[in-house]
């Protein structure tokens, strides 16, 4: 009655892809912050900021970029008009947007707060 769906697991995993990137960003940013403080990157002046902040900012932007790419991928995915695949695609898409908003809300402070104190 239903056509077989290719890669069911992939469709399912996509609903957590956005937030998985958020979690990855969290681990990397927190780990880099701690490591950078230990290694003294915050003491290396780089223009208006320091090395640690630049590395953190780079990681932040990389993850935002990856999430935007995910949104683009999900929007371009060809899905049926109804049924589970469409449902999962919509959930994945809105979750990805929520993850982007969460990324901004959670990590934007790295441009401002004292990194090692």
């Amino acid at each position: 009655m239903n056509r077989p769906v290719p890669h069911p697991t992939r469709h399912l995993l996509m609903i957590v892809a956005g937030f998985a990137l958020w979690a990855l960003a969290f681990v990397l940013l927190y780990g880099t912050q701690a490591t950078g403080c230990k290694a003294g990157w915050h003491l290396v002046e780089m223009g208006p900021a320091n090395l640690l902040r630049l590395v953190l900012a780079l990681l932040f932007l990389l993850h935002l970029g990856a999430m935007l790419a995910l949104v683009r991928y999900l929007r371009r995915q060809v899905v049926p008009m109804a049924g589970p695949v469409r449902f999962l695609n919509r959930v994945a898409l809105f979750s990805a947007w929520a993850a982007i908003a969460s990324t901004l809300f959670t990590f934007v402070w790295l441009f401002w707060l004292s990194p090692c104190q």
Binding site: F105, W109, W112, L113, S114, Q117
Partner: peptide, 18 residues
Amino acid sequence: LTALLIYALIQGERLLPH
């Protein structure tokens, strides 16, 4: 939440042993 968080983080920065 955004307003509260900014308020609390500003305060947190001020309280640090700079």
